[in-house]
């Protein structure tokens, strides 16, 4: 029939994948090579471990954001939500620590997860049932969570009880066979997330809703349920990140998680997930989060960027990373 002649011949290249999905990893590899040339210390095991561990929070939250964004949503509240969950968790643990001792830590983790899921449910419900633009809805909850943490801390700091500090510390600073625990946690989260997004009915539906809400609805998919679930996954991811975050500095402050939402969205987009929805890349997101942290690290390790220009150079590198990604798609 007329099929073959109908579509322009170069269309096939536009759609081909493989190289396109490799974009963020190519960018990451390029960055590592450049980093080594700038300062060989960059590749020291210690530095790499530090930087990748640091990127775990953003990576875990960004994995959740991959679901929200590929389902066509957006969540600006993740940074504030992380701070809020951290605060709730610390206050809870400090309250129960005198009576239950270090058992307060697993209880605190459970409370964090429940809080995160509840926050996600709130966001998802406002967006879907309330039919409010995700940008505005989560901008609202962003303010709410931020104000709550400020109120809980009196604008200052709530620190974890001293009796729990050392018991909890290994969750950030510990390692298994030399691999820091936060890295293991983010790998586990990424594995589960990749499975859910690529290999389950939910993942299919999630991407379908993001690609075209109408098609999904006409195909008998409950758009509301899929979207809310995506926000709940996001909330759970934020809680997991908060659980890893608490032992690092042992405190929640009103500036905890400030502007994380922007880093998270940047990581997701660098990773190849379409900001308009319909395409999610879990491993790309992880690469994106690591890229962001590597860039910041390189800024300090290199000597040729004035401290005043660091942000500008970071911006340029992010744009270049996106261009590499875009070009590898052609």
């Amino acid at each position: 029939m007329a099929d073959v002649a109908a579509a322009p011949p170069r269309a096939q290249h536009n759609w081909s994948i493989g190289w396109g999905d490799a974009g963020p990893f190519l960018a990451l590899a390029a960055l590592v090579a450049i980093g080594y040339l700038i300062n060989p210390d960059f590749l020291s095991a210690n530095n790499i471990a530090n930087v990748v561990t640091r990127s775990a929070f953003i990576a875990i939250i960004a994995i959740g954001a991959t679901f929200v964004i590929s389902s066509g949503g957006l969540d600006l509240s993740v940074g504030s939500m992380a701070a809020f969950i951290t605060g709730v968790m610390i206050l809870f643990m400090n309250t129960v620590a005198p009576s239950v001792g270090t058992a307060a830590i697993p209880l605190g983790m459970a409370v964090a997860l429940v809080t995160g899921i509840a926050c996600g449910l709130l966001n998802g419900t406002i967006v879907t049932v309330g039919r409010i633009e995700p940008f505005i809805a989560t901008l609202g909850t962003m303010g709410i969570f931020r104000a709550l943490i400020t109120y809980m801390t009196d604008g200052g700091t709530v620190a974890i009880d001293r009796s729990l500090r050392d018991a909890y510390r290994p969750v950030y600073f510990g390692d298994v066979l030399g691999v820091p625990i936060p890295i293991l946690v983010s790998l586990a989260v990424a594995l589960v997330a990749a499975y859910v997004l690529y290999r389950t009915r939910y993942g299919r539906r999630c991407v379908a809703v993001g690609a075209n809400e109408d098609v999904a609805r006409y195909s008998g998919i409950s758009v509301t349920r899929i979207r809310i679930t995506a926000y709940v996954i996001q909330g759970a991811c934020v809680a997991i990140a908060a659980i890893c975050y608490v032992p690092r500095l042992g405190a929640a402050t009103p500036t905890t998680g400030l502007l994380w939402e922007l880093q998270v969205i940047t990581a997701v987009v660098i990773g190849g997930t379409a900001l308009r929805g319909g395409r999610g890349r879990v491993w790309g997101t992880v690469a994106g989060a690591v890229i962001l942290e590597f860039i910041a690290n390189l800024m300090v390790l290199s000597d040729f960027v004035s401290e005043y220009l660091v942000a500008a150079v970071q911006g340029v590198i992010i744009i270049i990373a996106m261009l590499i990604q875009r070009m590898s798609k052609r």
Partner: peptide
Amino acid sequence: QYANWNSDEAFKLMQDYLA
């Protein structure tokens, strides 16, 4: 370097200084 009067950023920056 700037760390924005923020503990988290100071933590990262100090790690990098140490490296």
